[in-house]
Design a protein around this nucleic acid. Sequence first.
DNA 1: AAAAAGAGCAACCGCGGCATC
DNA 2: AGATGCCGCGGTTGCTCTTTT
Length: 340
Amino acid sequence: MGRAPCCDKTKVKRGPWSPEEDAKLRDYIEKYGNGGNWISLPLKAGLRRCGKSCRLRWLNYLRPNIKHGDFSEEEDRIIFSLFAAIGSRWSIIAAHLQGRTDNDIKNYWNTKLRKKIMSSSSSSSSSHSSAAMATPFLNPNSHDVKRPITPSATIAPFSYNPYVENSTRSLISNINGFEADDQQIFPFFNPNYPHEFSLEDMSSSNNNNNISGTSGFLLNHSMCDHYSNHNNFSSEVNGKRSEIMMEQEEMMMIDHHIDQMTEGYNGDFTQGYYNNDINGHGDLKRMISGTGTNSNINMGGSGSGSGSGTASSSRFISNLAENKTSSSLLQHTCLPYFYS
DNA sequence: AAAAAGAGCAACCGCGGCATC
DNA sequence: AGATGCCGCGGTTGCTCTTTT
């Protein structure tokens, strides 16, 4: 047999909550919590409400530290980037914004942010502003979706990476009709680019978003920067330089993956190889970054504007990735996550 | 000034996943 | 193992306030 019915909907009050009801609910939960059962709570709290209604009221309005009011530019960017990466998973998006509820974000997106982006995109269709870059996710007919096509002579099949081969298109296509060629999505995995990330020491320089190095591969993790600037990743091997422009959707997928991949890791990988792990508090995310900041993901090589990272960090990352090279870490560990 | 339209947002609805019986 | 109920989530509704005509 199952449990008792939730409530008799004909006997509960519906509609807006009164201050008195709010006070009752708040007082009860602050004293006793919800007891792990919202259904039985209203009776105990002396409320003629459905348990679901109580839960909603508490979570969306009465809960401590709820933030109401205007969203900041930074919050806009976070919402937008996560929406583009994972869609309307409002609860997940809310988890990235302290004090905001899923309902709040959902309403904000539906009433303001979407319009804001749409209106901006129509006035700057060719720029890389955040608004313009939003277009592909909002307008399936957009012609801005695809990156400039890489010269075909340099493109090799992704036969070494079944995930890219089989799943990229379907994944991307799920984002509001976005269509793209596999080879246009992750060109930085193209073996014909000089990006066979070695584990050698290297010198590097870092100018804001334009990150360059030799043999290394570093993704700037600051979405804020991604939106306001071109994402220009370059690598130099044997004096030959290749620059790759990363589209926003690529960055967001990687960004999202890193968050997912590192969730719950609590320092098992602290080996003292990394600035931020020296004290034994590193997590996988920081370990991957190997830079002492969370804003950079160092997937190989070394050197960044953060001034840390060493060749050994690359080796260690590689060891963690089951002895794959650092580029393989991204290929075989990050990508499958998205394509599963 | 009043009516209509639009915007904002709290609350409700219904579904899927999971837990319980 | 199957039935039932709870929880959490995303989508939708409808009320209220604001803006436009």
